[in-house]
Design a protein around this nucleic acid. Sequence first.
DNA 1: ACAAAAGTGTTAAATTTACACCCATGC
DNA 2: GCATGGGTGTAAATTTAACACTTTTGT
Lengths: 225, 225
Amino acid sequence: MITSAPIELAVSTVIFALRPAADSSRRTVWLPLVRRIREPEQGKWALPGGPLEPDQELSESAAFTLNETTGLSPSYLEQLFAFGNVDRSPGNRVVSIIYWALVREEEAAEAVVTENVRWFPADDLPELAFDHAEIVSYALGRLRGKLEYSNLGHAFLGELFTLSTLREVYEAVLDRRIDPANFRRQVETSGLVRATDQVQTGGRHRPARLYRFATPAASTAPTQE
Amino acid sequence: MITSAPIELAVSTVIFALRPAADSSRRTVWLPLVRRIREPEQGKWALPGGPLEPDQELSESAAFTLNETTGLSPSYLEQLFAFGNVDRSPGNRVVSIIYWALVREEEAAEAVVTENVRWFPADDLPELAFDHAEIVSYALGRLRGKLEYSNLGHAFLGELFTLSTLREVYEAVLDRRIDPANFRRQVETSGLVRATDQVQTGGRHRPARLYRFATPAASTAPTQE
DNA sequence: ACAAAAGTGTTAAATTTACACCCATGC
DNA sequence: GCATGGGTGTAAATTTAACACTTTTGT
């Protein structure tokens, strides 16, 4: 048997943010991609990532690439899956450990758009390199699934938020309308959020009470599940 | 910066089977462990596994080790998580991709018990090497979680089975009693199983109708979720 | 006053849970 | 006959879902 090249180990990240849809109606799920500047698959769009350094934690590697790509820190970061099919990349054998992350939109992000980094709506992606389309699809499923039984919404929101805002997050991610009255009751019953004594004025309507999450944040590792 | 040893990539598997409890009352979850015969952690029990070969699929590697350890083929095999903390193994950096598997008990298995391979009840494990205790705990959680929304029970049963047998699988995995009448209705409503026109006689009671799963089996990859 | 979103109330439908009770077989 | 698990019936409790209605602000 011939000694072959060692297996390469890479870490890539699916980064989600909420942004106004193209028709600026309401917010939808977007993600940043980088254009490949070398073979294989040169010119195609791909998930941001890179090789794992020997002294770097897996999640560190994911967070590093994320910051490099978007200038942001993840407000949520979790491992998704290890993709390692022998034929997934022409040439060397590459095993990619994929993370998925959520970031708060705020403002800054816009600046980082360059020739080779661009944000796309999750439901309207270009052709992707390697098996990255499959990966994104899987990550979206995980995002939707996890939203329903965790305080994942936290990652898209600030410290304080109204129940309307929280509902908009759910509607964006799940891509369907939710009854405001029932949503309110479900969230209140769940114990995930706590009402504050503050309200948000400024709309041409009754001020909305502000809430905060009862628990600090969601996790990154299998430890707490 | 000094060039350091390449990161090692290993695949290990948490293998679950149902076996009669020590007091032979009813079935519970068991798993096989191998004793480490070299440093580090020599003498401790660990999950079966080994390094990934360059031309070997991840799931192949897992299935191979599984067969080597138990003489069985997995009836279910799915990737669990990639554990890769820098300090999880003294010495080299090792990233382990962990699979979890279910096997049907049947008979054969007994033979494979050797000095360095032994089955343990999942709720009464010895001290494990590395972070394997955490891994097993996570795998158990996944097994329980997944049982409720998939035809995972298939993996523990043969082609035909009675609803009582299926219920015993659920009771063993979830470790709680389930009302037979309600279980029957839930399973029938779910569409996961289909009644056959055969019954199983032999008990000192009314014969039980035999069922089969409506869908062939559960998956291995993220593709279908 | 009016529009609009915040927030409450009410009811029907669907699902879950508990448990009584009949059925068909082996002994 | 009788014990045993197979299988059906029934009703209360809980959860989900749909939607009418009241409240409070900005203009």
